[in-house]
Amino acid sequence: MTEGKTILTVDDSGSLRQMVTFVLKDAGYDVVEAVDGQDGLEKAKTRHIDLVLTDQNMPGMDGLGLIRALRTMKKYQSVPILMLTTETGDDIKAQGRAAGATGWIVKPFDPARLTEVVRKLIG
């Protein structure tokens, strides 16, 4: 089911990117890494991405900025985008939802639950 599915993980923390990549590759997905919103946007433009997993607080373009930019692109209008962040406030979650986020995952993430929610969204 996961064969050929590619996930873009966007986080300015190298260790977090490695952890996400480790968990998702172990679950059978291909993973593309980006170091911030702008890098994520560039990689999303040039590749086929089935799901985006992005941090919120990053230098330059943040997670909300990335979601807004992706949602203006036809090919990303219905691609699931999950926020993976330390942010827990209702106000920022509401901003994420309004920007077009599909869901909100609070760090630290549980590997099994992350894989479960990704499977639910893209198989």
């Binding site: 607080n57 330390t86 942010e87 827990t88 406030g89 979650k93 994420g96 939802r97 986020a101 599909t102 869901g103 909100w104 995952i105 609070v106 760090k107 630290p108 993430f109 549980d110 639950r113 992350l114 929610v117 639910k120």
Partner: peptide
């Protein structure tokens, strides 16, 4: 100012699908 981190322990966070 960077935003504060609210976590005080290492329990895993919630997942919410909109």
């Amino acid at each position: 100012q960077p935003r504060a981190v609210s976590q005080h322990h290492m329990e895993c966070g919630d997942i919410e699908l909109f």
